[in-house]
Design a protein around this nucleic acid. Structure first.
Lengths: 346, 346
DNA sequence: TTGTATGCGTTATCAC
DNA sequence: GTGATAACGCATACAA
């Protein structure tokens, strides 16, 4: 059984138009040196026959697939999905195709997909989560990315520390988390807890750093058992919050390093019969699509998804076109104040 | 600037091994007719050089890309994401690549992606949501799918009514929704409302049909203003429930045609100060990943994601391999009883 | 068992 | 302005 039957080639068009394949190709690629007369004749036949050039053959010849590979850790996190959507749209607008690979945060699968996609001649990679996020990538991983980047450009979104030959497009997470801390201070909170996902991730450790920095600067004292780390799931957020709620002294506010954790944290608080924000204020990070739907709606940070995605894609295109490009692009985020924070009770 | 520099071809390997490219090709494709001696020599060099055959060239020659295109309506619905994940994994296991396209429920974008992917020589399409779900697809759409299916096989997941030359893998939504109704009856509910997403969708209208059928059969009477339709968003679910709650007579239970709507419905109920399930029982459909995390955890239907995805992919592979295949595969779903339903108050 | 020649569909380089 | 031809990298039919 053979696929793609009855497909029309450039030769079919050429024959019908009484010209050579070369001329048809020139028409397709909008070259000047073809007379208006033949151009129109060829174009008419192309339309009639619904002819579409074979991208595979083009790719083989041009060594350009007009396809970008996006390796994403998971589609369960709405934040990642947002980036995928934006990247896809941006690609689509410029005639590119986005090839999405799901890595499940498995480094082996990442390697496999990297190779599979490379064999398919993608013009570049965007990495989102997974190894991109490693705070201390090991030598092997660095070597692999190094080798890969000899073939095609690689862009990390929110990460990429330590990969010298790669490009980076990052949200200014430090400044964003700083604005959360400042906001909590401005509400009057001095006793602030922190719930994080996995440590040794860029996304996590930066926030921990800012958290500690802020408390020290304000001399509010750092209570180590108010910092609880788990992983980025709802269940884990719940468990972490339960741990905090079991302390003798309780904080009046708890910051979470993403919204998913915040969902879990809120659940735990409500289960104890406590109220948000009256008894404890909660903050998140990412502004996932349901953050506004929580009860109460969550105060969080909205990353500039479309800019992140656009710059990532743009970086690859510019690289291909031989343009000057920045190694590192930092993008501002925005504090979204909703109802999950209030002043602490006396 | 040129991409994919320094890449090794089958000729490089051939030269190094002192054989012809044909022999290398035979080694790569595990043909018998090559002596153990040369096979080992060639394999050694392939390893040393980290040679990987160019999939684009292979595709051009074989007319098989070992790539399947999955057109999905949106990645914001966790149900769709589940299917994507399962399909990706299944493809990966059999050496295929899944090309995911996001259609945003826009028929034009669907057409565009269909063509883009076809030009990239995908070996088949899986359609999820979007036009697949149309209860009454128009002539134009049918014609397009008809034409497309002359080139490559097309499989619809949960839909595909009216597309004669396409394949279908569906959850038995009718039976599943029937089990929800029966369950509510068994709890003692006789006054049951219904919240749906867009009408004229396969996914919606089947459930409405079953809903009405059940009420009639039990002679509980059909209260038309307990049936409210919106779209498949949280906000819409909330609005629909608010409408129901504004009626003079209230139902004791409300079934929602998916979990997203149920989230919104629950929000509305809680906002009115009512309790779930004491004051009103709620059911969903899909068992999205947070359904167990709602307050209270949602009683819903779990579709067999992995079977749906596996059969969809399998259908395409079998078609390519010229095997006998079923036009229509129906897969059972499972009622997941949690805490969002109880017996009605007297 | 192995090598040669050819084609897959397109584009670029030459000629004319 | 247009056409023949080679090349992209691989795999097959055929020859040896």
């Amino acid at each position: 059984m053979s696929l793609h039957k009855d497909h029309i080639t450039i030769y079919d068009i050429a024959r019908r138009a009484g010209v050579s394949a070369a001329t048809v190709s020139r028409v397709l690629n909008k070259h000047f040196n073809v007379s208006t007369e033949t151009r129109e004749r060829v174009e008419k036949i192309i339309q009639e026959q619904h002819y579409e050039p074979n991208e595979i053959a083009r790719t083989l010849h041009n060594r350009l697939s007009r396809t970008i590979g996006l390796l994403v850790q998971s589609l369960n996190n709405p934040f990642f999905v947002k980036i995928c959507n934006e990247a896809e749209e941006y690609c689509d607008n410029i005639g590119y195709t986005l090839l999405i690979g799901i890595t499940s945060n498995d480094f082996q699968k990442e390697s496999k997909l990297l190779n599979t996609f490379l064999k398919k001649q993608v013009d570049g990679f965007i990495l989102l989560g997974g190894r991109a996020n490693e705070f201390h990538p090991d030598k092997e991983m660095i070597a692999e990315m190094d080798l890969m980047s000899k073939h095609v450009p690689i862009v990390f979104i929110n990460g990429g520390v330590g990969f010298k030959n790669c490009f980076v497009v990052n949200t200014d997470e430090a400044m964003a988390f700083d604005s959360i801390m400042k906001y909590l201070f401005s509400c009057g909170h001095k006793k602030i807890g922190l719930i994080t996902g996995q440590r040794n991730l860029w996304t996590t450790d930066e926030k921990v750093r800012i958290y500690k920095e802020n408390l020290k600067k304000n001399r509010y004292g750092l209570q180590e058992d108010w910092i609880v780390s788990g992983e980025y799931t709802i269940e884990s957020g719940e468990q972490c919050m339960n741990k905090i709620l079991s302390r003798k002294k309780l904080p009046t506010a708890v910051a979470c390093t993403n919204d998913i954790l915040a969902i879990g944290a809120m659940r735990a608080v409500l289960h104890k019969g406590l109220k948000i924000p009256e008894d404890v204020s909660i903050t998140g990070f990412d502004d996932i699509f349901m953050a506004a739907e929580f009860i109460p709606p969550l105060t969080t940070i909205r990353q500039n998804y479309s800019l992140l995605a656009a710059h990532a894609v743009r970086t690859i295109i510019d690289y291909i076109e031989g343009k000057e490009i920045e190694k590192k692009i930092i993008i501002k985020a925005e504090l979204i104040v909703r109802d999950s924070c209030a002043s602490p009770r006396n």
